[in-house]
Amino acid sequence: MSHADAHAMHPPTATGLDTRKLAIWTFIGSECLFFASLISTYLVYKGKSLVGPLPHDASQCMLDGRMQQCEGVFEIPLVTFGTAVLLFSSYFVVKALSGAQRGNRKQLIGWLSATVVGGLFFVGMQVYEFYHFFHKGLGYTTNVFSASFYTLTGFHGTHVTLGVIWLSTVLVLAIRGKLPPEKALNLELAALYWHFVDVVWIVIFPVVYLMK
């Protein structure tokens, strides 16, 4: 049977909302609590680390076995740039979706590729950042800052990675011509998730990187 048939077969829903869209929204609601727990833990452990390195410059901290002045590990400019790219990718996916809905293949594929590239750039930025921190002596188990920081941003990065995989899958569909306007919802669902992942980062960025 054709796919158009398959769609017509679903009776209208009780609320008029699409069932898959409602499921994504529900899932996002649940994920809010997941990240809220991680962010709360980061905040609870702020300033509780017994040894350095620490996120921000500190006049007194325990490093290499003695109290000394130590330099913060955060590279704000780099992360600010990564944040901007991630935010722009949210805009890109909106453009891609409008292309999908209007049947404009070029717009769809172009902007969706840009979204995927933006996501990949962000993940790359994070990998570089982690690598850099390791070199400054900040291992996963160094202190409670590093444990809560890596866990929080690591889970966010995993979400971004999953989003990139999802968007890339949709991109492949689009390139193969399997994303006609009536199936634009397949992109919209991924886009909803993508926006959510961005919004979480908008909370993480000031709370983790900017708040001293």
Binding site: T13, A14, T15, L17, T19, L22, A23, T26
Partner: peptide
């Protein structure tokens, strides 16, 4: 949750 909201 989705079933109850949408499939009534």
């Amino acid at each position: 949750f989705v079933t109850i909201i949408n499939l009534r």
